[in-house]
């Protein structure tokens, strides 16, 4: 029996290096990460029974200045029948609190977010694939010299976990991690599509004020982002700020003059502002640029019809 266990163990260990940790520690110097980082002001919210997901999200939300307690978060994201919390519910929950939520997929990015002051919700399988023990925790620090990551996990504050051990548990959770930030503050490692998806999701859950702020933040980092100017225009339109929407769509059309979508949406903003002539001209432009897409023709017809009423 012991011999069997030993054989199993040797096989297992031989096959299981922690590739990202190894690579990260090897290329430490070139990554530009500080050797240590700890986000100080993220107190532990000790998880209640089965509530690791709600506790992790509540801590992340609190760190962004939102008011959220564990029970309240649990009502929004916990699934009693599964005795646990689904990952997508954590993602959606962050957005329902008006926060930007952006995924993180590599260990380097995870540590970079912590170094930038953004705690990261991590999903782990603390056990093996054959007997999974799923867990959410909040990563708030690391120490490369001691090869540790620091987690607020379960009922333990600042739990120091070996980095390669963490990587194994995280890999078994499919490398799922989420950065939750205030809408005016983008995740450090977010790329443009990820940031835009986060902002568009705020618009979808009708957190329009936060969505507008988030679009501005995306524009702050990528000033020529066509999608962000379009998104800002749509959000302002939904807020009935038609002049603001017009300005945003105009900017989008400046960035990409051949994009029919910009002219299509601009036409609606102009129509709402009562500028019939300009609205029709914009809609016609969308039609001429839009090829055989019938949406633009419908827009033109609708806008011509509006003024007849």
């Amino acid at each position: 029996m012991a011999r069997l266990a030993a054989v199993v163990l040797v096989t297992a260990v031989a096959g299981c290096a922690a590739p990202q940790t190894t690579k990260l520690l090897e290329s430490r110097a070139s990554l530009g990460l500080p050797a240590q980082a700890l986000i100080e002001d993220v107190p532990l919210i000790p998880q209640e029974d089965l509530f690791c997901g709600p506790a992790a999200l509540a801590m992340a939300l609190t760190a962004t200045g939102a008011l959220a307690d564990q029970q309240e978060v649990a009502r929004a994201i916990y699934t009693p029948g599964r005795e646990g919390t689904l990952r997508n519910d954590v993602l959606g929950g962050a957005r329902r609190w008006g926060r930007m939520a952006v995924p993180v997929g590599t260990l380097t990015d995870l540590l970079a977010e912590i170094a930038a002051g953004n705690p990261v919700i991590v999903f782990q399988n603390l056990s093996l694939d054959i007997a999974p023990q799923w867990h959410f925790a909040l990563a708030i620090g690391y120490d490369l010299d001691r090869r540790q990551i620091i987690l607020n996990s379960g009922t333990t504050e600042r739990l120091r976990t070996d980095l390669s051990t963490f990587e194994h548990t995280w890999r078994r959770g499919n490398h799922w991690a989420l950065v939750v930030t205030a809408p005016d503050h983008l995740a450090a490692t977010a790329d443009e599509p990820e940031a835009m998806a986060g902002a568009a999701a705020l618009e979808r859950v009708r957190r329009l004020n936060e969505a507008a702020v988030a679009w501005q933040a995306v524009i702050g980092r990528w000033p020529d982002s066509f999608g962000a100017h379009m998104g800002l225009g749509n959000t302002r339109f939904a807020q009935r700020d038609y002049a603001g929407a017009r300005a945003a769509f105009h900017r989008a059309a400046d960035i990409r003059p051949l994009a029919p979508d910009a002219w299509n949406n601009l036409a609606y903003a102009l129509a709402r502002l009562g500028n019939r002539k300009a609205a029709i001209a914009a809609a016609e432009k969308a039609v001429s640029l839009g090829g055989d897409n019938p949406n633009y023709q419908d827009t033109l017809n609708e806008i011509r019809g509006l003024t007849a009423i």
């Binding site: 568009a200 999608g227 379009m230 998104g231 949406n295």
Partner: peptide, 9 residues
């Protein structure tokens, strides 16, 4: 109608 943000993203 407006071309929605999610379609654009």
């Amino acid at each position: 109608g407006l071309i929605g943000s999610e379609a654009i993203v």
